[in-house]
Amino acid sequence: MTELTLLIADDEPLAAERLQLLIERIDGVKLVGVAEDGDEAVSKAADHHPDVLLLDIAMPGLDGIEVARALSKQERPPAVVFVTAFDQFAVAAFEVAAVDYLMKPVEPGRLAEAIARARALLTQRDRTAADKTGVEDDSPYLDEFWASDLSGLVRIASRDIDRVSAERDYMRLHVGNRSWLIHHSMTKLEEGLDPALFVRLHRSAIVRRDFIAGFSRNSSGRWVARLQDETEQPVGRLYSEKVREIAAR
């Protein structure tokens, strides 16, 4: 088993000490430092490059969410596990791709589960990076997304996405009966998806080409795409030419 390095960031000495005691019971992990506030967490993460960061949210200086955002810019950011006494930050935590969200006082079993989850994520991330090394004709398009839900992180293959709909500053990826929100702009997402597989039909909608069952016109004469799940997607005026392109007319 590869040893994981851990960094704790918590401004409560007793909480940090409890985490250290729990970590000592878990095989295959090594504590490399303890930070007492958000700014120190960023600094020590830059020095030690930990695999996993056990991160409090309410701290002096940078809070935990801000720390996670700052570290996400690293070439190999740590897997973040939030450890907090407050449950109202759960949604914000998963928006920054947290691996897990633990409530204080932390239960030994939940900490071990969170670290196992972090290990799985890091292993998959490193394997994906290794697979791409040395591939000369690697596709310029995105082949996967990582989205958060209450169970942790979910890998979504681009080819499995049926459609994408915009919700303010977020994009909702629809796969069968399920959907996930990711923080992305529609324009960047359109650029990242293979145009051979996906087509933008509206300023707020992208659809996988083979998910389109047909087209019809509504009472106003506008095109409407009929989708495989028996829903409809209006075609925006600026995207009407896409209908002719798809129908090869």
Score class of each variant (00 low, 15 high):
residue 111 L to F: 09
residue 234 P to T: 10
residue 125 R to L: 09
residue 242 K to V: 12
residue 211 F to N: 05
residue 53 L to K: 01
residue 120 A to W: 01
residue 60 P to Q: 04
residue 42 V to Q: 05
residue 1 M to W: 08
residue 32 V to H: 10
residue 197 L to Y: 10
residue 46 A to L: 13
residue 136 E to P: 01
residue 230 E to S: 14
residue 172 R to P: 09
residue 99 V to S: 01
residue 29 V to T: 15
residue 150 L to D: 11
residue 28 G to M: 13
residue 203 R to V: 11
residue 92 A to D: 15
residue 216 S to G: 12
residue 157 A to G: 09
residue 177 N to I: 03
residue 248 A to D: 08
residue 10 D to E: 13
residue 138 D to P: 03
residue 94 F to G: 04
residue 14 L to H: 05
residue 236 G to C: 12
residue 29 V to D: 08
residue 100 D to H: 06
residue 72 S to M: 01
residue 130 A to K: 02
residue 103 M to I: 11
residue 189 L to H: 14
residue 107 E to H: 06
residue 173 L to C: 09
residue 132 K to N: 10
residue 114 A to M: 06
residue 158 S to I: 05
residue 206 I to Y: 14
residue 214 G to Q: 10
residue 81 V to Y: 05
residue 36 E to A: 08
residue 43 S to P: 03
residue 35 A to Q: 03
residue 76 R to S: 05
residue 160 D to N: 13
residue 43 S to W: 06
residue 207 V to W: 02
residue 64 G to I: 02
residue 5 T to A: 11
residue 82 F to T: 00
residue 217 R to W: 04
residue 51 D to G: 08
residue 59 M to F: 04
residue 206 I to V: 15
residue 68 A to E: 00
residue 153 L to P: 04
residue 103 M to H: 06
residue 74 Q to W: 05
residue 232 E to F: 12
residue 34 V to A: 01
residue 140 P to R: 11
residue 16 A to N: 09
residue 55 L to Q: 06
residue 48 H to P: 00
residue 219 S to V: 07
residue 203 R to H: 14
residue 213 A to C: 07
residue 107 E to P: 02
residue 101 Y to L: 01
residue 188 K to A: 14
residue 17 E to F: 08
residue 107 E to S: 05
residue 84 T to A: 01
residue 187 T to R: 15
residue 68 A to Y: 00
residue 141 Y to E: 04
residue 62 L to Q: 13
residue 50 P to Y: 00
residue 237 R to I: 14
residue 248 A to H: 08
residue 29 V to W: 02
residue 183 H to W: 03
residue 246 I to W: 11
residue 132 K to V: 02
residue 164 V to Q: 10
residue 79 A to W: 00
residue 201 L to D: 09
residue 123 T to C: 04
residue 41 A to E: 01
residue 225 A to V: 07
residue 249 R to Q: 12
residue 214 G to E: 10
residue 155 R to C: 08
residue 205 A to Q: 15
residue 3 E to W: 07
residue 195 P to M: 14
residue 194 D to T: 09
residue 218 N to D: 15
residue 201 L to E: 10
residue 238 L to H: 12
residue 162 D to N: 14
residue 62 L to A: 07
residue 4 L to W: 03
residue 91 V to A: 15
residue 45 A to I: 00
residue 186 M to P: 15
residue 174 H to A: 11
residue 54 L to V: 04
residue 100 D to S: 11
residue 123 T to Q: 14
